[in-house]
Nucleic acid binder design. Structure first.
Lengths: 343, 343
DNA sequence: TTGTACGCGTTATCAT
DNA sequence: ATGATAACGCGTACAA
């Protein structure tokens, strides 16, 4: 079913069908209705490829997500969901590209083949080849996250530095003197993943400001790693009474390790973190955490991208959010650990 | 950068460039290298729309996911992730369409505009307009889930009926005499959502076979609903000692309700369910559940779809899986409930 | 190897 | 207001 067929059956010219659909030239009501009747009958829809080829835009955006194999965290999934929803509201389709590096085939197809009008990039590193590649390509893009040159691109991001600092201050206010940061995986930190670095910085700063003792640990993104990571922290630091963390996926394991050590939360040990609201609420007990507004962030990213597509030369926009810490069930006054002789 | 430009700079015809890239006609090694040099220098990649227009295929598959607003369950997200990964391995891109009904704009764009070579459909209902629409369109498609006419399409699915029956039998073996089924939301059941209906059937059958007393409840897909649903079940049925469930998202709430009733798991009360392995393991205590192999199912769906695209006339294929129940920490011998006078 | 028609929708032009 | 015609976007594949 193509436009020529519709024209033939309606007894009009191809161009008339096109104009009837686009309204870019007046078409009499009678012919318009006749054409529409045929279209409805045959269920015609213009070929998206032909349209894209002619118009030079695809009405599709690319969403670059962390690559295969690695399991996405709840927060990342929330971003994906919110981007897809926001795009659908703007009548944009979303093409997913699970790509980590610049030379990923999927990434190259999406960026190089003009399959999309713009790209939303997730899990950005401080230095990121994909950002370089996208800038070189001239394709509009928006980061969920940012590089170490934040003024050179549009982005939305969480202020992990502030958030972790707030967690530490909250714990300090409760009397905790010895806290740990459970960070994202060491590979990510080594690869220059921004949130991991910024969480570090915020933690170090806050700990110094409050004259506390702080330890940092990296932890893989899963429950098992959370168990061993916190298990080790508890064993190595008898004075430790609290943990701050940005590692969502490890949280269930962290709870387990604390329980296995014979400690209760929040009676003997406190946890504060950064997580999506649902995730924090589903933990048991519910986690005191800065609630990440993934929905708004994703929607905002789409919004920025749509604007950038409309005017690629416009100034860059940024949005850095630092949601407040919601007090739930996992932080309480510091109490020396039962088996801790020193600390 | 288009193929004409490459041809000009290489001093050859456009078609020669095309043949040099596709290898569908011999091109002398010297010219091939000259062309390649120009391509590398300019970073040329063929325009995907033009290619799709000419070839009649997009090398893209559509993935229809549950629509906006409703939060996707962990299992649904696992399906999405596995489909995207499997597609990437096959060098296929994935276009996401968050659509519930047939008249969804996004759905129509994807199906009607020939934007994709095939479609994977999630959360299928026993009678599903989208299936009708897809069949009418002639576009190859594969279901993750199936309608009540399972022989008319290709699909992969979980055998919820068997799985829930197994959970019930497991509970019966442990001496439980009075169990409840916590199903998916009532709207889904009313809308004819297959898994909800099949879970019902499996539950009723197994309960009858073992001469048990069974109650059924629908529950929204979130923890809060889980709390109130199980809270009500516990209050209304003093003899109840176990729950079987397919409602992942409600599970954390179910745990909470049981705890609030002063019962321990699995000492006083047992839970068995159907869930992704990660989800089951992350619960506290880890859930005894049939571990849904979402990765394999998603990959298999992509595989079926690829085959269907290659040969749309081929016979339909199906895959019904019933993974075994992994015993974890939530089921134990039946024990009359502390406050239960009758039972 | 080259020239060219084709896939399909859009839009400008000239004419009615 | 509408028709007829053709150019265009870009890659592919057949005939020459």
């Amino acid at each position: 079913m193509n436009i020529g067929e519709i024209a033939k059956r309606s007894g009009v010219a191809r161009s008339t069908v096109s104009y009837a659909l686009s309204g870019k030239r007046p078409v009499s009501e009678t012919t318009r209705r006749r054409i529409q009747a045929v279209i409805d009958e045959l269920g015609y829809q213009p070929n998206a490829s032909a349209k894209a080829l002619k118009e030079g835009r695809t009405r599709t955006i690319g969403l670059v997500i962390p690559p295969a194999g690695r399991r996405l965290t709840d927060m990342q999934l929330s971003f994906v969901a919110s981007v897809v929803d926001a795009a659908a509201r703007a009548d944009l389709d979303v093409l997913l590209s699970p790509s980590g590096g610049e030379h990923d085939r999927s990434f190259e197809r999406v960026v190089g083949g003009r399959r999309v009008d713009g790209v939303i990039l997730m899990e950005i590193r401080l230095e990121d080849d994909r950002v370089t590649r996208l800038r070189r390509s001239g394709l509009p893009f928006v980061g969920i996250g940012r590089t170490d040159r934040p003024d050179e691109m549009s982005w939305v991001d969480l202020d992990y530095e502030t958030l972790i600092a707030r967690c530490v201050h909250h714990l300090a206010d409760l009397g905790h003197r010895h806290v740990a940061l459970v960070n994202r995986p060491g590979e990510l930190l080594a690869a220059g993943y921004g949130p991991a670095h910024r969480a570090r910085a915020g933690f170090s700063r806050a700990v110094a400001e409050r004259g506390m003792e702080g330890v940092q640990a990296c932890c893989a993104d899963d429950a098992r790693a959370g168990v061993s990571c916190v298990g080790r922290l508890l064993a190595d630091h008898p004075g430790l009474t609290a943990v701050a963390t940005i590692n969502e996926a490890a949280m269930p394991g962290m709870y387990r390790a604390i329980e296995r050590a014979g400690l209760s939360v929040p009676g003997d040990f406190s946890i504060a973190g950064v997580a999506g609201r649902h995730w924090a609420e589903n933990l048991h007990p519910p986690l005191t955490a800065a609630d990440v507004p993934a929905d708004e962030l994703g929607a905002h990213a789409v919004d920025l991208l749509v604007r950038r597509i409309a005017d690629p030369a416009a100034a860059h926009h940024r949005l850095l959010v630092a949601p407040p810490v919601s007090l739930r069930g996992t932080t309480g006054p510091a109490r020396p650990r039962p088996s801790a002789d020193r600390g």
